[in-house]
Write a protein that binds this DNA or RNA. Structure first.
Lengths: 215, 215
DNA sequence: GTAAACTCAATCGCAGATGTACGAGTTGTA
DNA sequence: TACAACTCGTACATCTGCGATTGAGTTTAC
């Protein structure tokens, strides 16, 4: 019996944010834990198939030290994803969403696209090893933010209503990912990326002008 | 000593396209070869990490039969990709590119996006196992077709010129992939997909109308 | 200063994939 | 019909990754 599902509803007190952690964990252990999580993100970005040993090496700790903090590989991946999304949430919650929906949308994009670039390799890995429900759950907060913004833009009459919101969100997602890919390939300057994304998405999402009509 | 590299410089005459193949290969062998190539595409689409054994099973042949046709896994992947792109090329070469650039663009999209969906998993796998130069080489034909169309649209004044062509092509690519992803997730009807893609890309690529300006 | 917590190297068993070797059965072709 | 080509199962060697254990040494906390 693989004992695989011991992790699901385990009484592991380390996963929830913080507070009880400092009580029984030594400071160097906490440091190593943080180093490992950061290393997971960067190692997987370099090589999506990075092994646990690769991540440990990237973190500068022994493989067994890593296993001391994370019993299994999926547990490590999940913790890294949670941490990554938490940081993203902190950044995004600072972005003001009021005013013109188009301008707010641009602000969100400018703040989002780099974060997305950093964690998308990790996300792809997580999708292979974590249950899809867990993935969705972790992404809901970030997606809800953009969704409500787009919906407001539609109510305000500046965003088109002839396409489903889900398709507009999906488009936003892939265009940002595409920009990240172009940057990586050296065909796009990172500083230009937010503008390039805006230049595609704003006309694409705009409510059709009465003069030109569709197309 | 593992004697691993005895295979490297073999004088295998089977790789080059065709012509000498029918001469010394039996018809059932050719059929099996075709079955294997088709199976590679579908198996990898189902599971991007499909093993050689998985592909052989999907093809309904033994693993050793597969190895009789393709000495190594990369050789199999490359052959499958070449075959897949060849079929795509056959379809796309039928699409008329004259007339209004926007309409021609829509026609290309309508013909492309399903093909792209079918081979994108294979492409992702190939990118892990084949040298990048080879990948680029195989894609040049298809990309050149769309590129020249976009460039003509710019000369005709219907497509915008304030963004690099490479970014427009990259956007086209990711939006089509996004549509494929939405279809797979069940959030988008396959029959609607071409229209949804058009609805995003045509306004995004349109030369800015003088009445509304740059939004 | 002592005990507990932590780090980490070495080693093992297990599983899965690739590629090779052998060999016997089957089928197309001349 | 007879031969060569082809199929394909079994078995094997190799490699890689995961996860566990042992048994140290080292650092932190009390």
């Amino acid at each position: 019996m693989p004992t695989k599902k011991a992790t699901t509803a385990s009484t592991d007190e380390r996963v929830p944010a913080a507070g009880n952690r400092a009580a029984n964990q030594r400071v160097d252990a906490q440091r190593n834990r943080a180093k490992i999580l950061a290393a997971a993100v960067t190692a997987i970005r370099k090589n999506p198939d990075a092994s646990v040993a690769d991540i440990a090496a990237e973190a500068g700790v022994g493989r067994m030290t890593l296993y001391g903090h994370f019993k299994t590989r999926p547990e490590l991946i999940e913790a890294a994803l949670v941490e990554s999304l938490d940081r993203a949430e902190n950044v995004l919650s600072e972005v003001p969403l009021d005013g013109d929906a188009r301008e707010a949308f641009s602000r969100v994009i400018a703040s989002s696209w780099r974060l997305l670039d950093q964690s998308r390799a990790l996300l792809a890995t997580a999708q292979k090893e974590l249950p899809p429900a867990r993935i969705r759950e972790l992404h809901e907060k970030a997606e809800a933010r953009v969704r409500s913004l787009v919906e407001r833009g539609r109510r305000d009459g500046v965003f088109r209503t002839d396409l489903p919101v889900s398709w507009l969100l999906a488009t936003t997602h892939v265009v940002m990912n595409g920009a990240a890919e172009e940057v990586r390939a050296g065909r796009l300057d990172p500083d230009d990326a937010p503008w390039f994304i805006d230049a595609i998405l704003l006309p694409a999402f705009a409510n059709a002008a009465p003069s030109e009509g569709a197309l």
